[in-house]
């Protein structure tokens, strides 16, 4: 894979938004950990599907276009509005695992705004669902006040033009 470090070195930092994921319900009966067989599941955000039977069908088209279930959409609605600035990224704030994600973290840090990050490498289900949720094929994905702001290029551009500073200032004041 590209710009991904050793998966075993990922640490999950409990955060309010991750608690949101965990709070959704019980561990699903289907195996979400297929992609990361060597890693423990308990720390991962979990999702419950109303009907596990229908999940097996869904799992078949996992990679195609059925990743965004209504449940996941609801959860994401809550997550993106749980903080003024939310960054879905590869790795964590302190240990970005992709150059593009790192760039956005550094920009946000330099602007001194509080922001929450969610590591999409921790959960393949979340990762695929988010692509649909944001209609955006890549990561990082930056959300400001519940609205999709852009990926790395757009954030860099907006930072250079001063638009990002404006948007963030407005968000912090509201």
């Amino acid at each position: 894979m590209w710009c991904v470090g050793p998966l075993d070195s990922i640490t999950v930092t409990p955060s309010p938004s991750l608690a949101l994921f965990g709070g959704v319900g019980k561990t699903p009966t289907c195996s979400l950990h297929l992609h990361y067989p060597s890693r423990p599941l308990q720390a991962l955000p979990t999702f419950t599907l109303a009907n596990p039977k229908s999940y097996s069908k869904r799992a078949l088209s996992f990679r195609c276009s059925a990743a965004l279930t209504p449940e996941l959409k609801n959860t994401l609605d809550k997550v993106v509005t749980s903080h003024k600035v939310v960054l879905f990224m590869k790795g964590t704030k302190d240990f970005p695992q992709c150059g593009f994600s790192n760039t956005v973290v550094q920009i946000l840090r330099s602007l001194n705004v509080p922001f929450e990050t969610i590591n999409i490498l921790e959960n393949e289900f979340l990762r695929q669902g988010l692509k649909e949720y944001s209609s955006w094929p890549t990561f990082p994905q930056l959300y400001v006040e519940g609205e999709f702001f852009g990926g790395c290029d757009i954030t860099v551009d907006a930072y250079k033009s001063g638009e990002l500073q404006e948007v963030l200032e407005k968000a912090m004041c509201s």
């Binding site: 590209w2 890549t138 790395c152 290029d153």
Partner: peptide, 26 residues
């Protein structure tokens, strides 16, 4: 605006994006 322009490019490359991992629209 820029976000919409990137969306236009992304959707034009919808098929290719399945294989592309990093697309930078300069």
């Amino acid at each position: 605006r820029l976000l919409e322009r990137h969306r236009v490019v992304n959707s034009a490359l919808e098929e290719e994006m399945k294989e592309i991992h990093a697309l930078s629209i300069k």
